[in-house]
Design a protein around this nucleic acid. Structure first.
Lengths: 235, 235
DNA sequence: CGATCGCTTGATTCCGATCAACAGGAGTGG
DNA sequence: CCACTCCTGTTGATCGGAATCAAGCGATCG
C-alpha cells in the first residue's frame, strides 16, 4: 500500500488538528463513552472503493479508523488462500486499534465506504493525559476480545444452522431496525466469517426461510420472522 | 461458589497489603512488564484441587488470578453440554481479568493448582495512579485478543492435522524446553479447545507420530521431532 | 449485448463424528 | 495385597453433515 500510505499522510498533515474533543463538556453521556465519537473529529475522512484494501496484515499500525459510511471486513489468510474474516464493521464502529506495532488483520472495504483516519500517536497522547481515554481504549479492546471469544464458541462447537442463526441475530442487534437486517457482505464473506462455504450459507438461509424463521425479500435483506426460533438455535 | 467466595474474602482481608510492587526500582525490565509479577505479591495463594471450579461463567469478576502451580482451563458451555475451551493457562499466566462486571468464561483447575487471588479494585486503584499499570492491563487484554483471534483462524479454516500442529507448536512455545511439551490436559480438553473430538485428537497424534513429526514417550508428553513439518502444517 | 459476478440448487464425496470395543493405569476398598 | 472400578487413551467400523463438483439463473457492468 504505497500510494495509499502517502495519501494518509497527506490528508492527516493538512486535516489533523487534535481538537481534544473528548474533554468537551458537551460530549454525550461520559467522556469515555464519547471517545469513538471524538475520534470522528480528530482525523480526516477518506473514501475507499468497494473491495479495496484499507491496510494489510502486518503493516505498521500507525492509524486507527472510524467507519462513517459503508462496511468493512477484517481478515487473515492462510498461504493457500483460505480466509478467516474476524469481524464486520458498520458505520460508527472503530477498527484497526492495536497495542502492538502492526495490524494483526487486513482490512478491506466491502462496499464504497468512508473512513475517518486518526493518527495513533495523537490518541495515545490523549490517553497519557486523560485516564478516561486510556480506559476507553482498553474497553474497545475488551469488546473486540468478547466478540472474538464468542466467535470461537461458534466456530468450535456449532453446526451450520446455529452459526447462521448466531450471525443473523448479531447483525440484527447492530441494525437500527431490530427485525430487518441489511447485509452489505456477500455469501462468500459470511461463509469466511462462519467457517463454512458459500453453498452451505446459501442452503442454510433457504432452510431457515422454509422453516419460517426468516424471510428473504432479496438476497441481501433478511427479515427475522421468528426470532425465538433463531434464539433457540443460538444457545 | 458460596464456600469459595467466603474463602476468597477471608484470605484477602488478612493477606492483602497492596505493596505497590510495580513501582519498585528493583522490578525487572520495565515497571509495566513486571505487573504480572507484582500481582503475585498483592494477593493470597489459594490451592485448587484437580477439576474444581475457580469461578463460573457469569459470576462477578471481583478478583483476578495468577497461576503459580498447576494448569487451568477457561471455557464456555452450550446448554446441551458442548464445550469450547478458550485457553489453557500455565504457571506465571494471569487469567480472569475482565473489564466488565462478570466473568465471560468459567475457569477450572486441570490438575492440583495454586493460584494467587488479587482483588480487582486493588489493581484498578493502582491503575488509576500509574499509567504503566493501566497500560499493562490493556496489554494483557490485547494479548488475550490476539490469542483468541488466532484461534478463530484455526477453528474456522484449518483441518484436524493443522489444528493439532498449531496446538503443539503453541504449547512448545510456552514451555521451557522448546522441543518437549508436557500436556497437563486430557485429549478431551484438547479436543474441546480445537473443535474436534477426543478420538480425532488421538488419531491425529498417532498420525503425526507415524509421520515422524513427533514422538509420544507417554500420552502426556510430546517430543517435537520435526518442527519444520509441524510448521508447514501451521501456515 | 456478451461477460462476469453473486446466488441457488443438485449430485457426489470425504473428513471428522459417532458408535463400539478394549487395553493400561490409577485409585479404592476389602 | 489384591480385586475391582473408573478413567483415559487408542483403534476400528460406520455414519453423516458440510465440502466439493457442477450447472443454471438473474443482475450488473463494461
Amino acid at each position: 500500500m504505497l500510494a495509499r500510505a502517502s495519501a494518509h499522510t497527506q490528508v492527516l498533515t493538512t486535516g489533523f488538528r487534535a481538537p481534544s474533543a473528548a474533554s468537551r463538556p458537551s460530549a454525550p453521556a461520559s467522556a469515555a463513552e464519547s471517545l469513538a465519537e471524538a475520534l470522528g473529529l480528530m482525523g480526516a475522512a477518506m473514501p475507499f472503493a468497494r473491495n479495496t484494501e484499507i491496510y494489510g496484515e502486518g503493516e505498521p499500525a500507525d492509524y486507527l479508523y472510524k467507519l462513517t459510511r459503508g462496511a468493512v471486513r477484517t481478515y487473515k489468510l492462510l498461504d493457500d488462500g483460505r480466509r478467516q474474516i474476524g469481524a464486520f464493521y458498520l458505520p460508527g464502529d472503530v477498527f484497526g486499534l492495536e497495542i502492538g506495532a502492526e495490524h494483526r488483520f487486513a482490512a478491506e472495504a466491502i462496499v464504497d465506504s468512508t473512513v475517518v483516519v486518526v493518527k495513533r500517536t495523537a490518541v495515545m497522547t490523549l490517553a497519557d493525559r486523560q485516564y478516561e481515554v486510556a480506559r476507553e481504549l482498553w474497553a474497545m479492546t475488551a469488546r473486540e476480545l468478547a466478540q472474538a471469544q464468542n466467535l470461537t464458541l461458534t466456530l468450535g462447537r456449532k453446526n451450520a444452522q446455529e452459526r447462521v442463526a448466531a450471525f443473523l441475530l448479531e447483525m440484527a442487534g447492530r441494525s437500527s431496525d431490530r427485525a430487518t437486517v441489511e447485509l452489505p457482505m456477500s455469501r462468500h464473506d459470511i461463509a469466511d466469517h462462519l467457517g463454512l462455504t458459500t453453498e452451505t450459507v446459501s442452503r442454510t438461509l433457504t432452510q431457515l426461510e422454509n422453516a419460517a424463521a426468516i424471510v428473504l425479500p432479496t438476497s441481501r435483506r433478511v427479515v427475522l420472522r421468528n426470532r425465538a426460533a433463531l434464539e433457540r438455535l443460538n444457545t
